[in-house]
Amino acid sequence: MFKGVGTAMITPFDENEEVDYESLKKFVKFQLTNNIDSLIVLGTTGEAPAIEDDEREKIVDIVLEIVDGKIPVIIGTGTNNVKHVLKYNKMAEKAGADGVLIVTPYYNKSTQKGLVEYYKYIAERTSLPIIIYNVPSRTGINVNPETAIEIHHIANNVIGIKEASSNISQIVELFSIKPDTFSVFSGNDDQVLPIMALGGDGVISVTSNVAPKAIVELTHLLLVNDLPNARRINNNYTFFNKLLFREVNPIPIKYAVSLLGLCKNILRLPLVSGTLETQTLVKKEMERLGLI
């Protein structure tokens, strides 16, 4: 669907905790100006569980209008209710999205067999390419490598996986059995280099909300196997990547984006603004990196 970096976009809110559509427009333009490869709308970083359906539709329409086909736009449509997933997929289709990102069902969870049936059922009912989102720390369930590949073989519009398990051994195993038709994207900014060195296609990134230029450069260097220069950028951003997960995502990145003047540091409950210590560290590191 894309190679390089797809920004897992924040969703801006105003002082009344309403979606700030003007800031959203500015943010998308900022990403395009910095040559981002793709945009991921209404994922974890976009606080999707706290977004109402009418807001979702307007957010997607605005992003697609501004992007105007220049890069792929992928919509997060996953929930733990399959009927809601189908509804959000239809919304994404109607809007003209390029694909959907579907997280494993959380809380009700599943067996591995259930995951195969779940994605097969969804894939049969959408025309869009699907990326599986594997994030066990949030969902309580892991997609085993053989399960991901079985899903792909049964439903060939399931074209890849966002791997945020943090389990490098599992990801190594996935690469050893996956066909060339199945893409693997890092779901963690601190694992971009090892995953892409194994043959990954890129990253769905939190850091690129504020540093799109650097993360684009990093991933594009890795795509041409320029490891020495990729290591240089990776090492320079390692501490910042760590800071962005010092508190629950998107708490630190929302503050970081606000320092660029692209949104206000406002989140919807149950998320709240980060501690003063986190904000101080994030600001200091952004100054060191020349981002502000």
Rank of each mutant, 00 (worst) to 15 (best):
A155T: 07
G76T: 10
T280K: 15
I149K: 08
T7P: 03
S137G: 12
F27R: 05
I141M: 13
R288A: 08
I141W: 01
Y121S: 08
V82T: 12
T7D: 04
V210S: 11
K109A: 06
I253C: 07
P72A: 13
E163G: 09
S137W: 05
P12W: 03
V272K: 11
H84Q: 15
V28F: 03
E18Y: 07
A48M: 15
I154W: 03
I59V: 15
E47C: 00
A214I: 02
A50F: 10
F13P: 02
E287L: 10
I74C: 01
A97E: 08
V203M: 00
A50Q: 12
G200H: 03
T126I: 13
F175E: 11
N167Q: 09
L222S: 06
L291H: 01
Q112S: 14
R125K: 15
E52R: 15
I75W: 07
L243V: 08
G160I: 06
K83R: 14
F239R: 14
I74R: 00
M286Q: 04
G69W: 06
E17P: 02
I253M: 00
I122R: 10
T126R: 09
S258W: 01
M1G: 02
F240Y: 15
T139K: 01
T77Y: 01
T207D: 01
L24S: 07
R56K: 12
L222R: 08
Y21W: 08
Y255R: 11
